[in-house]
Design a protein around this nucleic acid. Structure first.
Lengths: 123, 123
DNA sequence: GGGAGGACTGGCCACCCGGCCAGTTTCGCA
DNA sequence: TGCGAAACTGGCCGGGTGGCCAGTCCTCCC
């Protein structure tokens, strides 16, 4: 029952590098039981390869900054972060300030967006 | 220059569905010029297929909500969003409120994180 | 015609956020 | 032995945020 209903696996490509996209399309296009997505179609899975130039510089964040960053990404307020990490709200704000600075962000929302984009955190 | 230095394409799999992961691994493993990632190795590209159960419900967001959501993800404040969309700050807050509601978020940071996770927006 | 939903606006207000100032301790490195 | 970096704490304050109330316009649909 697994082979008769076995649908083709439909792959979509999200590749920034055109050369790589081309190679993959060629390689994957010739595999039986698997094909590339058609326009407007819903894919089974995506092949993702973002432009590596986007995040060459791994920003130097301290452990503590990573801690508060992770909690920020969860939507925690400064007060909640303070409780979680057992530090004062002032200290949280201090770390958040450093984060905004290092991530070149204008606010906590921007900060987690930047961090996620650069792969510093996994959303 | 593409064939002499042509490295193997190293694929990592991020598939929630075990059956699908297995099929893909089998299919892709037999393709020349392409192999699956080894532990600790950096992949050229990833094959991503999140558990469909996680986001079966494409949250029904209105166009306007998508507009403010996109600007929120940019780190824009309500005032900036209002200027961009040519509406009042009150209206922005109104849409943000709906967004927090629909996305089950506690704040704007949480909202963009949730939206990004569910693929509502591309970070 | 009347209802429902979306987009929009206003006021009010408690709370949160981020930036400024100041200080402390601890650690590693020159 | 000093000096910088990291972590931590405090006060202050302007502005932002989110929740509540209220309302007006639409348009689509029964």
């Amino acid at each position: 029952m697994s082979e008769d209903n076995a649908p083709e696996i439909v792959l979509s490509l999200e590749i920034d590098d055109p050369a790589l996209a081309d190679r993959l399309a060629t390689l994957l296009g010739s595999v039986a039981g698997l094909r590339l997505v058609a326009p407007g179609e819903t894919a089974t899975a995506s092949v993702v390869a973002r432009d590596p130039r986007v995040m060459p510089d791994d920003i130097a964040l301290t452990q503590r900054e990573l801690d508060v960053l992770a909690l920020m990404a969860e939507g925690s307020s400064n007060k909640m972060i303070a409780r979680q990490l057992n530090i004062s709200v002032h200290t949280v704000k201090f770390h958040v300030g450093s984060l905004l600075d290092k991530l070149d962000a204008t606010g906590r929302t921007d900060a987690v967006a930047h961090a996620a984009r650069r792969g510093v955190i996994e959303l």
